[in-house]
């Protein structure tokens, strides 16, 4: 049981890292990026290609994260511009449809060029014992990276001037503009950051299991569920929800069966929507 829960926490930190990129973009632009999982897959394929080309793993991972960040930036600067000009329900809808189209395009390109593509990063070493439970080195690395990213994000949004500027835009775009903050700049940075986080997810996920070229849909849906449960727009909420859902996932996989877990996660999301419509740590954003 202890091992199952610890596995769940490892899984959940990955979920949290996955959800945080999705939730940030929503909090800021009011856009759910349905291409998010595909951006992660894109990063994975870039890393895999770079590694196949003889580039050291760490450098290849950096290249992958940068590629994903640029993809996010590119999306913001091109397709998302008309979305921001809309308001209310139209904005949400146009954002969903356009990013869904982008998801098809990226998946089409990747499966066309590299139908069997997959990223698998082997971290060598003996299992590390934590609380008496042996954990694979890859899992430990992935969790450490996720925790470090969570800490960095919390410091960024809590203590830096730019982070506070981002939060001010989330709270009140007009007010932020009145005190001299450019929402467009903040959005571009956050979109790039979200893309970079998707790339980081690709790297950490492939440390525990191979990330294949058709994993995008799965990643997107998981990220959506995590961000809904955590509260759209909340960084801490995404990680809290990620860990909780990771434990739920791991326990239900152990006691009921692997294939039922996505139904269990869906149930958790539905329950959250019905009981706490704003999510666990959701703020004033609707």
């Amino acid at each position: 049981m202890k091992a199952v829960i610890l596995d769940g926490i490892v899984l959940g930190l990955g979920f949290g890292l996955l959800g945080v990129g999705m939730t940030l973009v929503y909090g800021l632009g009011g856009v759910l990026n349905l291409a998010y999982g595909e951006v992660a897959v894109l990063a994975a394929i870039v890393v895999a290609q770079a590694m196949a080309g003889g580039i050291p793993t760490a450098l290849a991972a950096v290249i992958g994260v940068l590629a994903a960040a640029s993809t996010g930036l590119l999306l913001d600067l091109t397709l998302m511009r008309p979305v921001y000009r809309q308001s209310g329900g139209n904005k949400v809808l146009l954002g969903l449809l356009l990013t869904l189209g982008v998801a098809f395009v990226i998946e089409g390109v990747l499966t066309w060029r590299d139908p069997l593509g997959a990223l698998s990063i082997n971290v060598a070493g003996k299992p590390i014992s934590i609380l008496g439970v042996p954990l694979a080195v890859g899992s430990v690395w992935a969790s450490v990276i996720a925790l470090a990213a969570a800490a960095a994000l919390l410091v960024f949004f809590g203590a830096t001037i730019f982070g506070r500027a981002v939060r001010s835009v989330i709270q009140d775009e007009l007010g932020a503009r009145l005190v001299g903050i450019s929402p467009a700049l903040v959005r571009a940075v956050i979109f790039a950051l979200s893309g970079g986080l998707a790339g980081l997810v690709a790297v950490t996920q492939s440390m525990t299991a191979p990330l294949t070229v058709n994993a995008g849909f799965n990643l997107t849906v998981t990220a959506l569920i995590v961000s809904v449960v955590g509260g759209l727009g909340s960084v801490a909420g995404a990680f809290l929800a990620g860990v909780l859902l990771g434990i739920v996932d791991s326990v239900s996989a152990y006691y009921i069966g692997r294939y039922i877990t996505s139904i269990v996660l869906l149930g958790a999301a539905v329950l959250t929507i019905l009981v706490w419509p704003r999510g666990l740590l959701g703020g004033g954003q609707g």
Partner: peptide, 13 residues
């Protein structure tokens, strides 16, 4: 083949 999906995505956008 897979180019189809690419084209459908582009049409949607």
């Amino acid at each position: 083949g897979q180019v189809r999906e690419l084209i459908y995505g582009a049409i949607v956008v």
